[in-house]
Design a protein around this nucleic acid. Structure first.
Lengths: 190, 190
DNA sequence: TCCAATTCCTAGCGCTGCTAGATATGTGAG
DNA sequence: CTCACATATCTAGCAGCGCTAGGAATTGGA
């Protein structure tokens, strides 16, 4: 069985290589540039090998998104932990969220606009996704009072998501971004 | 020149047929199902004819989106006009916005998530888009006081857009939609 | 009636995600 | 050490995509 474990180790490493290649390529050139042929060339295997690891391209994107959820949760946690006071925590978490989305647009797309099916039904994604959501909720909690915390958090999240996506698709001027973000934070921290 | 006008009339009619076919197909089966071959078959012409009317598939989607902007503006105007009082106007306009997006998901996608380039740089889109935006602004205005009306309106719009897109991609539970919408309206009408 | 211009179609290019069938590789038994 | 089996991998190809070049058909004017 020693050989079996070595093989499994190599398989796992190759799977990581696929995800890493997909992520790098998506961040560099966008998801349209991520083709199964280019991925196969990158990991120096033939195309069908990809399909022994993932069901299809969507599943590869979902795997990349999973990494993103963990990173976003960490980024939000860091922002909240270092904030001076509850009101500032809302602003800092919001800023961290937007920064994350701006700096890793392809990753954000995989998480929140593409690859609908897979990640939200699997096992480990809800964990990291819940972590990120909990950070938002914890930031909003001190201000929410006795109101519906979940609804407030989800709505706040929607506001951030809307700002990010509309700005990135050219519907909102980038120059006014700070003012809009300030409005959102203000409306959700009083 | 009489013949020329007849030809031009036929051309315009065919262009309308292309847009109508694209819209119907997108609403029925989503934009992925809208292929140039299916469109050509639908209007009973060959594929290259499409390219004598539009630069490419994106341009066809943009043309469909243009129709959407006009319809959205009308829907928002109707909602605002029939509202009882300024606070109710915000709620009604928000509800109308969400209803529009929910009932015509493919149309909404063409307008706000796909087809980035073309519509926002052309001539007639800004008109209808501005009309829709003005309806949102007029609804928010009585409440905004002396604050930055444009920033508030854009942020409110982002909130609506975020709610719609996150819910439709399965990131938010549909059951809690009314509560979230109420939160958003509440936060932007006090 | 004949020519020229316009309109339209056939055929095809390079690409996509994905898969069936053949081939190479590595393992365990005799 | 050899051989047969099982596993892993590759080559080749399918059907579809957006898009376009070049030739055929239709139309309008002289």
């Amino acid at each position: 069985m020693a050989t079996g474990t070595r093989r499994e180790r190599e398989r796992a490493e190759r799977e990581r290589a696929i995800i890493a290649a997909a992520r790098a390529l998506a961040l560099a050139e966008g998801w349209d540039a991520v083709t199964t042929r280019r991925l196969a060339a990158q990991i120096e295997y033939s195309q069908p090998v990809l399909y022994s690891h993932f069901k299809g391209k969507d599943a590869i994107m979902a795997a990349v998104a999973v990494e993103g959820f963990a990173e976003l949760a960490t980024a939000l946690a860091t922002a909240r932990a270092s904030a001076a006071g509850p009101r500032q925590a809302v602003a800092d978490v919001a800023a961290a969220y937007v920064t994350f989305a701006e700096q890793r647009p392809a990753l954000y797309d995989a998480m929140f606009t593409l690859a609908v099916d897979l990640p939200f039904a699997s096992q480990d994604v809800p964990t990291d996704l819940a972590r990120g959501f909990a950070e938002l909720a914890d930031a909003v909690r001190p201000i929410a009072g006795d109101d519906d915390l979940e609804a407030i958090t989800e709505t706040f999240w929607s506001g951030l998501h809307g700002l990010v996506t509309l700005m990135r698709s050219g519907r909102l001027r980038r120059a006014d971004h700070d003012r809009r973000l300030a409005v959102l934070v203000d409306r959700f921290s009083r």
